[in-house]
Design a protein around this nucleic acid. Sequence first.
DNA 1: CCAATTATTGAAACAGTTTGCATAAACAAA
DNA 2: TTTGTTTATGCAAACTGTTTCAATAATTGG
Lengths: 179, 179
Amino acid sequence: MVKEMVAVMGSKTEEFKEEKEIFLEHIQKSGLRRTAQRDLILEVFLRTEDHLSSEDLYWLVQKEDPNVGQTTVYRTLKLLTEAGLAREVRLGDGRTYYEHHFDHEHHDHMICTECGEVIEFFSAEIEELQDQMAEKFNFKPTHHSLRILGICGECQKLEREQSVASGAQPRVRVKTTLN
Amino acid sequence: MVKEMVAVMGSKTEEFKEEKEIFLEHIQKSGLRRTAQRDLILEVFLRTEDHLSSEDLYWLVQKEDPNVGQTTVYRTLKLLTEAGLAREVRLGDGRTYYEHHFDHEHHDHMICTECGEVIEFFSAEIEELQDQMAEKFNFKPTHHSLRILGICGECQKLEREQSVASGAQPRVRVKTTLN
DNA sequence: CCAATTATTGAAACAGTTTGCATAAACAAA
DNA sequence: TTTGTTTATGCAAACTGTTTCAATAATTGG
């Protein structure tokens, strides 16, 4: 078990060198310690280009090393966030998701309430207006999150087909956890 | 105990007539039943112009009728949301808050990460740009939520005073639950 | 190399919310 | 009104995502 960990320590792939350096730097700067778990979690996180909840990531990591607890994944994700490698995103269900942050432009999200698809978008104009708004209230913004909930193109199409096929009963929306 | 309830049923105040009608209508349309608890919860909710968590509301209701359970408050708030009288707001801590929705203009929130103050604001330009964005992705928006996290004017002032008084140590941010 | 210090870990605790169930209350029909 | 049917209620227990804590492991100073 320990031997395996040592093997992992040597960092499986040579990809993501930059990110790994950043992580190490952050670890050292904060007086923390490099561990096999943290290396593995970072590795798997970087490999997965998606919005991951802590639990999602936990299971992915489990597959490669069953000796990693949920807690460690939570903490490591928090670390990655501090290091600037990950960004917390709340999509609207209770969960917190994480997405790559390093080398990724800032963006906001549209979320389909039918299928859960997440569309990333960016608008410089909206950003600008937000800052103006904040200034008007003498508010110093540090972050913001803009989520647009609705129905994606695909689901709209499906909806139309369904209403034709089954005689246009109004469809019941799935779990409208607003906001 | 039953007598009291009957007294409450008759609706304590004559205010909020419109909202109460809407609620009744929704109740009937959905084949649900009017009950003393629901009436009381609605009443107290309407009386309190604020962002309330389910628990907040629970305690307020408790004061007037100790025979109301948390569960009922949760369920009723969901009802009120469906009826269009309340709106769910996630301010960033785990909790779900509710605010008045009927007859209240749509707005977004700035949240102070120091003191928790919530500033409501509205920008027609931002709304417009959001719709344009959605259209660009063929996305049919139903709701949106824009949160700006940062530091309110008051806390900025405090910060400045503190840094003068105590010799300008960089201040540690309280619970930076981003996003 | 050993002891003392400090960080890391996973299990258990925790908060907020939801669900299942037996009882009580609302409503409709007689 | 009374009866029968169906829904609402509130408790307790389940569940979810997250944080805490005591035991363990790593690192540092002597």
